[in-house]
Design a protein around this nucleic acid. Structure first.
Lengths: 340, 340
DNA sequence: CTGTTAGCGCCTTCAC
DNA sequence: GTGAAGGCGCTAACAG
């Protein structure tokens, strides 16, 4: 019977009218007799007619597709962002094309290429850790495909991006600790070269200065964010002659490893040493000794915001507002977990 | 300059040859002079020529798009599956169209419709909890769009699916507990109507019988999988005159809530009552008293397998093997976490 | 080896 | 109110 294969021409023939009439009837064009409209729609339904979007997209040069590239789906933070992206896209009748770069520059480039070929209307990208060459992004710009970057932003001029501002959260975190009497506050940071680490470090320094606490570089240790690295980092902290009474960790996982390590070494968690970290993972609630507080970065909201920004760009695609670049930094926020 | 706008016709004109020659040269058709090929490719590069996939797809009736629908991206299990799907799809040069149903039947239907309109070559679907009407899936079948269902399978005849077989894991779990001397084993199951619950229940019964342990229905309680529900369920367990010495939970989150509750009620976890659960979430490792073991369902591998199956279907699209349906049940496996 | 011709399914002037 | 014709960019018979 070939359902799903019916075309406007088939309908036209069976009705003895022209295909243009059918086309118009289907899209409720005025100037088509009500009677004709009915007959067309009726038959279309019977024949299980389905407009071929590929044909329509092809004609209209618009696909309602948004390409999304992120480093990994296995990381909670990113799948939360993706969830936010999908919700907004769905709402606005856009569909997502998805790709994960796996932090591989080549793969990222290939995905960009593929999505460009699929003629996505726009893209949302969080770049790979290892991407240093930005030619693929330049290409998108040349092709006038709007891009909004999120979380991991390339160092390029004239781009749109959304990210979360860690500074606000870090400052809240330090203030929180100081208010509770802590004067020696350590930092287990991530890999030194990571921008996210530098941002934390800078904010940490600033926050301490705000509180007139003098900086002690030995209180800052780095971890490669593996379990071993985290243990190693905590080991360094514990080895200090003057141990900190509070430690801020790169994220909740780092904190949990550090806490684990500390407990094994007879440290009373959140008593001898208090912990605060980033991400506000829900699972911490299940721990006996979770970090006291965590800095929430609202990934879902970041996804929402990024998508809304892109859609806005798609709206005024024609207008000559090409000069305006959206650079949005959403504030992060300290969430206190234990209030004992 | 209009880059990204150059077409094969432009190239043909500038070179004074026909567009079909250009087309062939570009796709490395044999029977095209090396010289011509070079000239064409050279100019194409200069003009920043980009083939318009929408046109190609339109012509070839093939999009290299795979539609993926899952209930939610915020659930770890599903984003792991998606990760597996993406890896294979990428490898085979397919791109993913993504949609989350949010367990809403209407939304699921709309997404199916959209993806069908986008002319996806095939689909991978895990159905919404609340989907009872399958007309949208029937439609896909009529349109000859191959579908492979995963994890959450509709009750339909003649479908392809991949799921994990909980029975094997449950049997291992019970055996594990019995071997450690447990004779009274409780079950905190999920919502009664859920197939996943029934499957667990059936396997639980079977496993007990295998071990000649007599069934006691009061040892089986249900939870709606909310925190409150989980607490409520554990409360019921603790209220039993004859408390179980071991409890199998619907998944790790349920287990963690139950453990939490038990601890608050002076139960010595994994001593008075031992816990085993499903999912093998990595985060359990950070807990002081995690479930002793967890049944791993290998979501990433499920995603891989589902995608491979679909691609296989896409291969022999024409052949008349329509009779063969792939019903794959991947075994689940008990992973022992604590071996003290 | 290369050119010619025909569409793919739809929308859109331009006529009537 | 409706029909005829053309074309989007590309591929693929069918001819040379």
């Amino acid at each position: 019977m070939g359902s799903g294969k019916a075309t406007i021409v088939d309908i036209a023939k069976k009705l003895g009218i022209s295909k243009s009439t059918v086309s118009r009837a289907l899209s409720d064009h005025h100037s088509i007799g009500l009677r004709t409209k009915m007959r067309v729609k009726q038959l279309a339904a019977e024949l299980n007619y389905e407009p071929d979007q590929t044909a329509i997209f092809f004609k209209q040069r618009k696909t309602f597709l948004i390409g999304v590239i992120l480093p990994s789906l296995s990381i909670n933070f990113f799948s939360s962002i993706l969830s936010g992206i999908e919700d907004i896209a769905y709402e606005k009748n856009y569909t997502l094309l998805l790709g994960q770069s796996r932090d591989d520059e080549e793969r990222e480039k290939k995905i960009v290429e593929t999505m460009k070929n699929h003629r996505v209307d726009g893209m949302l990208i969080s770049i790979s850790k290892n991407t240093s060459d930005y030619s693929h992004f330049e290409l998108l710009k040349k092709n006038k495909i709007p891009v909004v970057f999120f979380d991991r932003i390339p160092q390029m001029p004239e781009i749109h991006y959304i990210a979360s501002k860690l500074e606000s959260g870090m400052i809240e975190a330090v203030n929180f600790l100081v208010k509770r009497g802590h004067k020696i506050i350590g930092l287990i940071n991530g890999p030194e070269k990571l921008p996210a680490s530098k941002e934390r470090y800078d904010a940490y320094i600033k926050a301490l200065q705000n509180n007139r606490i003098k900086i002690n570089e030995s209180l800052v240790v780095h971890s490669d964010i593996t379990v071993d690295g985290n243990n190693e980092a905590m080991k360094k902290i514990l080895a200090l002659k003057k141990r900190p009474t509070a430690v801020i960790a790169f994220n909740d996982y780092v904190a949990m490893d550090a806490i684990h390590y500390a407990k094994r070494h007879k440290v009373k968690v959140n008593k001898d040493i208090s912990f605060v970290s980033f991400a506000n993972e829900a699972i911490c609630d299940y721990m006996d000794h979770p970090p006291l507080a965590s800095i929430e970065q609202f990934p879902y909201e970041q996804g929402v915001k990024a998508t809304e920004t892109l859609l806005q760009l798609l709206q005024k695609g024609g207008e000559k507002d090409d000069q305006i670049f959206h650079n949005i930094l959403l504030p992060s926020q300290l969430v206190v977990r234990v209030t004992k």
